[in-house]
């Protein structure tokens, strides 16, 4: 069955890559040059999908103040990866199971005990991470562990790429169909309940979506850095606009742009791909922080100076 899926995903991915390369072929040859290699083509498609999905979700993460939760889930994924490796499953599935269990556990502790979210996360995700480290120290080679922790987009296989694409499509479809519910729940949870929406379902639905996205991003940026892709694009966009649809668009743009440029840097300078993608995203954030027309530091500095002069 696994081999059947491998063959199927190779076909699907080939079709998608054909389309993508049609676009890349229009670019000047100097830019398109790295993409004559199949591994670079797959890396480009993965990077675009992951950048877009993370960017989309990051808006809700930032507005809901859930950046730490992203961190927690990404760490909690490790034991699942290790166990899947032991049993011989695709590690995508193991990661999703432990990530989802841990995040549901955090949500349950937060809702039903006196512990606050940060304590619940601190306990749950370090415990899960520790279990993962213990298992991995028994079984896997250190290069494999490094790839899980820091990602290696240049080594993505067709099966993993197809799963990433499916996860991305699910995330986009969920946000599109339940946009009103997500907006309402991130903006005003009490109103959500007063209107008779099931806020519990929206809450756990958003957490599962987050888990799905994290797992899908594992091979690209890795466990440690995925939280950056779930916070930075949203934070950057939040500095640049006061409208949610625009914020979603900017965050997706930041995610995709960082992924592509990071990939180039990784190729030409032989850098770790996950790290270079996040460095590009952080640079964009820094630019927005300083130069944003309405919420940037420069603007604030000029405004304060004007007020001081006026008095």
């Amino acid at each position: 069955m696994v081999e059947g899926f491998d063959a199927f995903s190779r076909n699907v991915v080939d079709v998608l890559l054909g389309g993508l390369m049609g676009v890349v072929g229009l670019l000047p040859e100097s830019i398109a040059e790295p993409f004559q290699y199949a591994f670079m083509q797959r890396a480009l498609l993965t990077a675009i999908v992951v950048g877009a999905t993370c960017g989309l979700l990051s808006c809700f993460i930032v507005l809901k103040r859930w950046s730490l939760l992203g961190d927690a889930i990404s760490h909690a994924v490790l034991p699942g990866v290790a166990i899947a490796y032991l049993v011989g499953w695709p590690f995508f599935i193991g990661a999703f199971i432990t990530g989802a269990l841990t995040s549901l556990g955090i949500g349950a502790i937060e809702r039903h005990t006196r512990l606050k979210a940060d304590a619940a996360m601190g306990v749950m995700f370090t415990a899960a991470f520790a279990i993962g480290v213990v298992i991995i120290s028994q079984i896997a080679s250190s290069t494999h562990l490094m790839h899980i922790l820091f990602g290696n987009v240049l080594g993505v296989q067709p099966a993993a790429l197809l799963l990433t694409i499916i996860a991305g499509l699910i995330a986009v479809a969920a946000v599109a169909l339940f946009y009103k519910e997500l907006l309402l729940y991130t903006f005003d949870p009490v109103q959500t309940r007063a209107l008779g929406f099931h806020s519990g379902r929206i809450h756990y639905g958003l957490i599962l979506l987050l888990t799905l996205t994290i797992v899908a991003s594992l091979e690209t940026v890795g466990i440690i850095l995925v939280v950056a892709m779930l916070a930075t694009p949203g934070a950057t966009a939040h500095l640049l606009t006061d409208r949610l649809p625009v914020m979603l668009a900017i965050a997706i743009g930041v995610g995709v742009f960082s992924a592509i440029i990071g990939l180039y840097l990784a190729y030409y300078f032989n850098l770790a791909s996950g790290g270079s993608i996040v460095v590009v995203a952080s640079t964009l954030f820094l630019l927005a922080l300083v130069f944003s027309p309405r919420h940037g530091l420069l603007r604030r500095w000029f405004r304060d100076a004007a007020i001081r002069r006026a008095h």
């Binding site: 507005l63 009103k180 519910e181 907006l183 309402l184 991130t186 903006f187 005003d188 009490v190 109103q191 007063a194 209107l195 008779g196 929406f197 939040h238 606009t241 006061d242 409208r243 949610l244 625009v246 914020m247």
Partner: peptide
């Protein structure tokens, strides 16, 4: 949608990127 609730305004996230129109529109979501 037979119950409407108006919170104390300290209990809302006013930094949220949403316009006056869209905020008022959320009353129709039900």
């Amino acid at each position: 949608s037979e119950v409407a609730y108006m919170p104390q305004h300290e209990n809302l996230e006013w930094d949220f990127p949403i316009s006056v129109w869209d905020t008022v529109m959320t009353g129709r979501y039900g």
